[in-house]
């Protein structure tokens, strides 16, 4: 499509570009931060409270979802560990999750819109969103139309998001950019702005489905945090952020949180403004919390294994 380069260039000249090497140098500095003692405990607990505990597999069953929900409500029987933010499941599993977590602080997030590809007619995608909400989903994780974005049809991409917003009703929306398919940081920044302009305060932009070759990285997280900051300072609208996929260790999670602390500040250090889409992360957070509590390194089999969706 010949429209693509011009449309992108126009948008980038308005919102600015990203230098790949520069931003990767910036985020590398987060990984040299040394988080000890009380600040580590705080960070680990904060991370637990931000987890969208996820299972997204073809083989998911009500039973699997049930154990996921129990884990979400009581991540560990030792110590004073908070509940996770949400469980994240396929639409067909929402009603099963609802049995366990409705009425608890744990919210139900459902991927929808023909996740992960989004390659279904819009009507179908919207119907899926409405069905998930009707079954009890508090939050909807949608995918953008990457084809529309890459071919420069920005208004098509935005219209579709806007219609999903409408279909969500009171449910919070998370807009998955699928960063690996956008390839460049410039594209991620552009797509972030396009999405933020049509979603509501408190809605999320999210990196990935977890179903492609690469997922959340400190780099694409930073591009999106920078975009959220610029958008907030320009419009006053606070958008939330969810990196998803690939964050498996407590150490990684702390690096992401340091990025939040140093880019967006204290007001984003809570689970209304920041989430982790992850399955195995929770167990490592718990292991590290136990290690901090007991002083001993922990074997993995002390912790019930969550789904390995990612």
């Amino acid at each position: 499509m010949s429209a693509a380069p011009q449309a992108l260039r126009r948008l980038l000249s308005e919102i600015g570009t990203v230098d790949q090497v520069g931003i990767e140098e910036r985020v590398a500095k987060y990984t040299t931060r040394s988080i000890k003692k009380k600040s580590k405990l705080f960070g680990l607990n904060l991370a637990v409270s931000m987890v969208d505990l996820t299972t997204l597999e073809g083989k998911d069953t009500p039973g699997k979802v049930a154990s996921l929900c129990q884990k979400a409500l009581l991540p560990h029987d030792q110590g004073d560990v908070p509940t996770v933010a949400a469980v994240c499941v396929y639409p067909a599993m929402v009603k099963h999750a609802a049995k366990y977590v409705k009425g608890t602080p744990v919210r139900i997030a459902s991927v929808a819109t023909a996740f992960p590809s989004g390659q279904a007619p819009l009507k179908t995608r919207l119907a899926e969103v409405r069905a998930a909400v009707a079954d009890g989903a508090d939050e909807i994780d949608m995918v953008i139309n990457r084809g529309a974005f890459l071919s420069g049809q920005f208004s098509l991409m935005q219209d579709e998001i806007a219609q999903v917003v409408e279909a969500c009703g009171n449910a919070t929306l998370k807009v998955i950019l699928e960063t690996s398919e956008l390839e460049t940081y410039d594209n991620i920044r552009a797509a972030s702005f396009l999405a933020m302009r049509v979603i509501r305060p408190g809605d999320f932009i999210k990196t990935s489905t977890g179903k492609t070759s690469s997922n959340a990285t400190l780099g694409n997280n930073q591009v999106m945090l920078d975009a959220i900051r610029d958008f907030f300072l320009e419009t006053g609208t606070a958008i939330a952020m969810k990196p998803a996929g690939g964050i498996r260790t407590a150490k990684q999670a702390l690096h992401f949180l340091i990025a939040v602390k140093e880019t967006l500040g204290d007001e984003w250090l809570n689970n209304q403004r920041y989430r982790f889409g992850a399955s195995s992360l929770l167990n490592d957070l718990l292991r590290q919390l136990e290690k901090e509590r007991t002083g001993a390194y922990q074997a993995p089999y002390y912790f019930s294994e969550a789904a390995e969706a990612y």
Partner: peptide, 23 residues
Amino acid sequence: MPAASRPAKKTARPSSRELVFGD
């Protein structure tokens, strides 16, 4: 520990447009 609750949009708090790099 921040507990999960309704998103901030529900409170519709007007934003000061300042970031807080506090403690």
